[in-house]
Design a protein around this nucleic acid. Structure first.
Lengths: 179, 179
DNA sequence: CCGCAATACTTTAGGGCTAAACGAGTGCGC
DNA sequence: GCGCACTCGTTTAGCCCTAAAGTATTGCGG
């Protein structure tokens, strides 16, 4: 059934390179494509409220950490999985909107605490439910059974990869000789 | 079973916002995270050969289109799902490496044809199998049954969304009044 | 045929990210 | 106490992308 776009890609490769097993494309490509659709969907939903995904990432990470909705900049970087430089930019943007504030205080004056302002908290709580509803609409085409099954498969796959990362079949040399 | 990171995120939200259904996080978040892991894996594999994902995207799209491995710049943009400006940059980069060449010819001199050079073809054919093997290693933790099941679910989900896009519960106004 | 909208690509301006250099502050070892 | 390695966050340079403006070319309507 070559009805779908991914199927056509696989067929093309089977024609051009019948010697290579390309079955992984049947998973990797839809994974990326669905991820992009979900991201576009969020961008659209958030755009209506004047925010973008990186803003939501910061606000939501602070919000779900619980009262007083405060994390250090470093902890925020780790939880959002972005570099420290990206966090600096994100926090500056949110600060200029009045949604978070930076607090430097004792005992370690290197550390910057980032905290949701009352307005930031209100704003996030208002938007969060809308975002979740938007995500949910993407899943409307799946039956409850499909959805449960998909969730389990993705969780198992991800947990497996996090516990046993695919190191490097060719890399990870060079670290044997220290500087 | 709060063993996994995504599960902890869901639990945090259930504690902080018990009024919101956050079950979609169980699918959307692993989707993005797995997509990022797959992308990092390809970046690593390709880096060994001095290329990156956008390079591979161009070369592989030309390659699987079949001999003479030639597409117009516009067609390349559509198939790679990037803007025309991005395609210009990508093609320039590949051209400077000698892997593709640009051909302007009759009858329409606006059109630019992008074609794999013999070296580009050889280079891609060498790397493609390595990339597919790299992707495959990510899937090693799944049983054949899980893999088949996951592939089917992702395909059905994607096909459904491509046929019935989630328009905008709040947007897509403004187009009723033409310019 | 002439004008003008449409098409095809390139260029420009700007955004968010990473990697790496940097500046400020901390605390261990002697 | 003092130096020095380390940690934390910010700054800088550069990458790839998008959106929009710009350039060249085509072809239709009158």
């Amino acid at each position: 059934m070559p009805g779908d776009q991914v199927g056509r890609i696989i067929e093309a490769w089977q024609r051009e390179r019948p010697d290579v097993d390309v079955s992984s494309i049947g998973i990797i490509t839809p994974l990326w494509r669905l991820g992009a659709i979900a991201a576009e969907n969020r961008t659209r939903v958030l755009g209506v409220h004047g925010l973008d995904q990186s803003h939501l990432d910061v606000l939501a990470t602070l919000r779900r950490s619980g009262a007083p909705y405060r994390l250090t900049a470093g902890e925020l970087s780790r939880r959002c999985r972005v570099t420290a430089g990206a966090t600096t930019q994100r926090v500056q943007a949110m600060e200029s909107l009045g949604l978070v504030e930076r607090v430097r205080e004792e005992p370690d004056r290197r550390t910057v605490h980032v905290q949701l302002t009352p307005e930031g908290l209100a704003r996030l709580d208002e938007i969060f439910a809308v975002v979740m509803a938007g995500d949910d609409r993407l899943l409307a085409g799946l039956t409850p059974a499909q959805r449960t099954s998909l969730e389990g498969l993705l969780r198992d796959w991800l947990v497996g990869l996090e516990q046993h990362p695919v190191a490097g079949g060719a890399g990870v040399v060079g670290e044997v000789t220290g500087p």
